[in-house]
């Protein structure tokens, strides 16, 4: 079976610095975590997949089709939903507009109503500017905005950043809901507890390369390894 997403020996440079140094990964349905300390290249990888960062070498395939070098809007239309780090809510758009303006409806798929059903707080504030929401609500809006494009693959970049633990718990149960659908999920995280609670497979990034790609259980069982890769344990 073709993997949903396949990244093959990806290299990205920012000026003279070699940020991604040959990253490869394959993922199937379910939730895959990408973890690693700050500055290891996690967000760069996401940007490269979305076409927002230029790739020097290597390829990205979505369901077997090469998407490297396509403009971001075509990559999005081919079925990747993007929830960026820092949420990137549009100050000039209302909550409701966020959930409608880029929607690509499919029968039985995600739409604004379905998102409101999951997050009633968003419905209550549907005419307000997205930036008037609390951090947690903004995160739900950022996820909802990506969901209504009905992606095959949803990439979330540090969704738990800056959120209170009780909100992170909500995020965990929401991720469980998403895992019931046939959407593939990528979770880029620094919050190990959160990542471990929702994902089975994990990729650990260390200075532009994956240093570990296997199950979360095996990683956490090996204290020497967790200490070396992520500085805990």
């Amino acid at each position: 079976m073709t993997p949903i997403l396949k990244v093959e020996d990806l290299h990205v440079y920012y000026g003279g610095s070699h940020v991604l140094q040959g990253v490869s990964m394959e993922l199937e349905r379910g939730m895959t975590a990408i973890i690693g300390r700050n500055g290891m290249g996690k967000t760069t990888l996401v940007n490269a997949i979305m076409g927002l960062a230029p790739t020097r070498a290597g390829s990205v395939f979505l369901e077997g089709a090469r998407i490297t070098g396509l403009p971001p809007y075509l990559i999005a239309r081919k079925g990747i939903g993007y929830v960026p780090q820092g949420r990137k809510i549009f100050p000039s758009l209302t909550v409701d507009e966020h959930l409608r303006f880029a929607a690509r409806p499919v029968p039985g798929g995600w739409d604004a109503e379905k998102v409101y059903g999951l997050f009633p707080r968003l419905r209550e504030r549907f005419r307000q500017s997205g930036t008037n929401l609390s951090g947690g609500e903004q995160q739900m809006l950022a996820i909802g905005r990506a969901l209504v494009t009905n992606p095959k693959l949803l990439i979330m970049d540090e969704p738990s950043e800056g959120l209170a633990p009780v909100i992170v718990d909500q995020l965990i149960s929401f991720c469980e809901t998403l895992k019931q659908t046939d959407m593939a999920l990528v979770l880029v995280e620094q919050n190990l507890t959160f990542a471990r609670a929702v994902s089975d497979q994990v990729n650990v990034m260390l200075t532009g390369r994956f240093a570990y790609q296997d199950s979360f259980e095996a990683l956490m069982a090996d204290h020497a390894l967790t200490h070396q890769l992520i500085g805990v344990g």
Binding site: M50, L52, P71, P72, Y73, I75, A76, R77, Y82, P84, K88, F90, F101, A102, R104, R145, A146, T149
Partner: peptide, 8 residues
């Protein structure tokens, strides 16, 4: 960039 990444 964010607008483009939503398919616009």
């Amino acid at each position: 960039d964010m607008t483009a990444a939503l398919g616009v």
